[in-house]
């Protein structure tokens, strides 16, 4: 390929060769980083939108000029609830609290909240932590997912 047509790798669009299992743009790469305590996202170079996990195109503006960016672990609760009727793999934990969290970067993701439902409110500051999957979670994991950590938000 003509070298001048290649964009710098940290700005996208991804080349075919960029899509490897150690790139945070793939789920194996994203979870490998997360297992080391690093939460990664994709930041759009055109509009600034941040997305977790990283993906090859910006959902806000459509641009593929995206770059991997380390995400802050601090955020706040946008919404929350408690799961009283869990999937089979999570039965022993119910009821448990889940929430939508907006990170300081603006990226939003769903995760468990390590607090009783009654102790959580919209706007509460939280911090993302990771832990190894438990036995029930491992039983529900596919072969390629067994090393992937579980993310949990702790109320600060």
């Amino acid at each position: 390929m003509d070298e001048s047509r290649k964009r710098p790798r940290d700005r996208g669009p991804l080349s075919r060769e960029d899509v490897t299992a150690d790139s945070p743009f793939t789920l194996p790469g994203f979870f490998a980083e997360l297992a080391e305590g690093r939460l990664t996202g994709a930041a759009c170079s055109d509009c600034g939108h941040a997305m977790v996990p990283p993906r090859p195109a910006c959902y806000a503006c459509g641009s593929r000029a995206v770059a991997v960016e380390k995400q802050p672990r601090a955020g706040e609760v946008v919404s929350y609830t408690a799961v009283h009727t869990p999937p089979p793999a999570f039965e022993a934990r119910a009821p448990y609290t889940v929430g939508v969290v907006e990170l300081a970067s603006g990226a939003r993701l769903t995760g468990r909240v390590d607090a009783d439902y009654d102790a959580v409110a919209i706007g509460d500051p939280v911090e993302l932590t990771v832990r190894d999957p438990g036995d029930a979670e491992l039983a529900a994991a596919l072969d390629h997912e067994t090393d992937w950590p579980i993310h949990v938000f702790e109320v600060r």
């Binding site: 408690a82 799961v83 999937p87 995760g111 993310h151």
Partner: peptide, 13 residues
Amino acid sequence: RALEQRSGITAPS
């Protein structure tokens, strides 16, 4: 699958 299912979320939640 990446983040929602792993959080044990359900349709009602």
